[in-house]
């Protein structure tokens, strides 16, 4: 799962207080390798067939949400830019991108 690292702990703290995601509803098989969501103790499961970001096309939405953080290949598939570090000031966009991905293909962790 590609990772975008957040750099500001202050933002992470405000995230932890948010409502847990309904991701638990999909959590039938908590396969090993599932990543923890930062704001809840729910694992984001690797559902069978869940698509990684590199295989998903349909990223115009991503372009309007967080163009600074993703780049596209010739198939329109998106990858995080560089090593996935989120520049200062763009943390909200990283979270917004994650919160708007129906394929749960974006993972954001704080460091």
């Amino acid at each position: 799962m590609p990772i975008i690292h957040k750099q500001q702990k202050q933002h992470a703290i405000s995230r932890i207080k948010r409502e847990p995601r309904p991701v638990a509803a999909f959590g039938k098989a908590l396969a090993s390798g599932g990543k923890k969501g930062v704001w809840s103790n729910v694992e984001i499961p690797h559902t069978e067939g869940a698509r990684r970001l590199g295989e998903v096309s349909g990223t115009r939405a991503l372009q309007s949400l967080a163009p600074e953080l993703f780049e596209l290949d010739e198939f329109g598939n998106a990858h995080e830019i560089g090593d996935g570090s989120v520049p200062k000031g763009l943390e909200d966009k990283a979270w917004l991108a994650q919160a708007n991905c129906p394929e749960i293909a974006i993972d954001v962790t704080e460091e």
């Binding site: 096309s57 596209l72 010739e74 198939f75 598939n77």
Partner: peptide, 11 residues
């Protein structure tokens, strides 16, 4: 599907 992706990219 792959061969239909390039004509529909955001670019």
């Amino acid at each position: 599907k792959q061969l239909l992706l390039p004509p529909f990219t955001p670019d």
